[in-house]
């Protein structure tokens, strides 16, 4: 469902160009569970943003469900993003003035789903992450673990096929991090494609497929352990 081929991304930092992604190719099947690890600045977040259509490759191609995305106009990329991709961020990114329920409804609101239908789906999803009693609370009344579960609820409310989590436990203590991971893994078991960027090796090892990035390149990919790494040729 994800077909990334020779993707490059270069940022201009001051005078010198910085290659955040170098000829990255990656193929992900429906329902996979991947972790992405690697040193800071190795391009993990850039890769995730690329897959989530938040960023455009400088060169290379990205097929999502067989659809060529890199040339699509912004309008359609936004639509694809809304429908197929759920984001989970390290810092939750909930809107403080909105209630838990309203935060979860946001993607549906942007997509033009009617209020009544929205409420129903949002409540169901909120129960799914175990926070049904917190529907009318505001983010500042919730703990970190609860906030991230709300963010997960928001990410899955549109029934996306891909869940992209960038250090979802980075701001959480051990116990709430564990809770959040379990919620995510449950979702994966139900069929969603899950990709987690993390610095936590214990967490990374839980994934069936582990990717290690270094310097904008995929250094190792547990699914192609014995194939020659592309970096050898560079």
């Amino acid at each position: 469902m994800i077909e990334l081929c020779d993707v490059n991304k270069t940022y201009q930092v001051g005078e010198s160009p910085l290659r955040a992604l170098r000829d990255v190719s990656l193929s992900v099947q429906k329902g996979e569970y991947l972790s992405v690890m690697g040193p800071s600045g190795s391009g993990k977040s850039t890769l995730l943003n690329m897959l989530g259509l938040l960023d455009r490759p400088d060169s290379g191609s990205y097929l999502l469900n067989g659809e060529k995305t890199e040339t699509l106009p912004e309008e359609q990329r936004a639509k694809l993003r809304g429908e197929h991709i759920g984001f989970i961020f390290q810092s939750f990114h909930l809107i403080n003035r909105l209630t838990t329920l309203e935060n979860i409804e946001l993607p549906m609101m942007l997509a033009g789903v009617a209020l009544k239908a929205r409420r129903k789906v949002a409540m169901a999803v909120l129960s799914q992450v175990g926070l049904a009693d917190w529907a009318q609370h505001r983010p500042n009344q919730l703990s970190g673990g609860q906030l991230q579960r709300v963010a997960i609820a928001r990410a899955i409310v549109m029934k996306p096929r891909i869940l992209l989590a960038d250090e979802p436990t980075g701001n959480l203590d051990q116990a709430s991090g564990q809770e959040v991971i379990e919620v995510l893994e449950n979702l994966n078991r139900e069929g969603i494609t899950l990709m987690i960027v993390t610095h936590d090796h214990n967490l990374g090892r839980r994934a069936k497929r582990q990717i290690r990035m270094v310097d904008g390149m995929i250094e190792t990919d547990s699914s192609t352990e014995h194939a020659p790494a592309r970096s050898d040729t560079l």
């Binding site: 938040l54 912004e74 309008e75 993003r81 809304g82 990114h93 942007l110």
Partner: peptide, 13 residues
């Protein structure tokens, strides 16, 4: 604004 875009809002929205 970044969040809204990540959640599927287009620039025109």
């Amino acid at each position: 604004i970044g969040l809204l875009k990540a959640l599927g809002a287009s620039s025109s929205q």
